[in-house]
């Protein structure tokens, strides 16, 4: 569990670290949306260059990002294989029963893999450079117009920040419980499916019991300090839009606009 890099925050003072979380959220969503419009060499080139430039601006080595991809390796292989075998059409390279490797299959597998990697990497830039609580603040601020239609934005933001705050705690706890059960002779990740499911029970039950106990303690502690849901509260950390945000936004809009232009007007 120590090796999981995906979804972790790496402190720093780079260009991307200094950006407003709202800007990072909006740009990431824009990027992910536009990835689905990229369809040929030039559009993918623009997307890739934009991504690499963003990685460079985060001052975190590319190899750290690559390591973040590794846990998803099998998922990627699986998606690629599905695409290779089931994307029919075009020149057939290889056939065995109903398994067919065709030109279209290979093409769409390549596309899916590329999209997969780009989307994961752009979200990783967001999580590597933004503290979870900043992300929650950013989401709250972006959703704040919904207050007008009585959407409980503050409550949602509180739930989100509590959940984000306790992800690492729960992961640590899961690791401790696994070590304790290992010491009592449990072999994790061995045996057949039935055996494996049986080994999950001694982790999940203590984990749930602890999580519920902790939730009760937190709510008691918050109420003891006079917390009331749905009040109009002010923020300790204020979000500020800076020059870096505007510049980044302009770069993204131009590059992503170019992808659109190439797709629809060339």
């Amino acid at each position: 569990m120590n090796k999981v890099m995906f979804g972790r925050f790496i402190p720093g003072h780079s260009w991307v670290h200094r950006m407003d979380p709202r800007a990072k959220l909006v740009l990431s969503f824009l990027y992910i949306a536009v990835v689905f419009f990229a369809n040929d060499f030039w559009t993918y080139l623009i997307m890739t260059v934009l991504l690499l430039a963003s990685v460079a601006a985060s001052a975190i080595p590319l190899k750290v990002y690559i390591r973040g991809l590794l846990p998803l390796f099998w998922l990627m292989i699986f998606t690629v294989l599905i695409q290779v075998f089931f994307g029919a059409g075009g020149h057939v390279y290889w056939q065995w029963g109903w398994l067919v490797v065709s030109q279209n299959g290979l093409n769409s597998a390549g596309l899916i893999l590329m999209r997969f990697v780009l989307i994961i990497l752009v979200s990783t830039i967001l999580t590597f450079t933004t503290e979870p609580l900043e992300i929650a603040d950013g989401i709250e601020s972006l959703l704040s117009p919904l207050r007008k239609v009585h959407f409980p934005v503050a409550t949602l933001a509180l739930m989100l920040s509590l959940a984000l705050r306790f992800v690492p705690t729960l992961m640590d706890e899961a690791e401790k419980i696994m070590n304790a059960q290992r010491s009592r002779g449990v072999d994790f990740g061995e045996g057949g499916l039935r055996q494996r499911i049986k080994t999950i029970v001694p982790i999940l039950i203590p984990l749930f019991v602890n999580a519920f106990n902790r939730a009760i303690e937190i709510s008691t502690a918050m109420e003891a300090r006079g917390y009331q849901d749905g009040e109009n509260r002010t923020k300790y950390r204020l979000l500020k839009w800076h020059g870096v945000d505007t510049v980044s936004l302009v770069i993204y809009v131009i590059s992503l606009g170019a992808v659109f232009a190439l797709r629809y007007f060339s």
Partner: peptide
């Protein structure tokens, strides 16, 4: 190995079953 706060490793329905869990592994 008795970890810190080892009560966090209990999971069985009964005390007896929990104590008997280790040897059966």
């Amino acid at each position: 190995m008795v970890f810190q706060f080892p009560e966090n490793q209990l999971f069985e329905e009964t005390v007896l079953k929990d104590i008997a869990f280790g040897p059966q592994n």
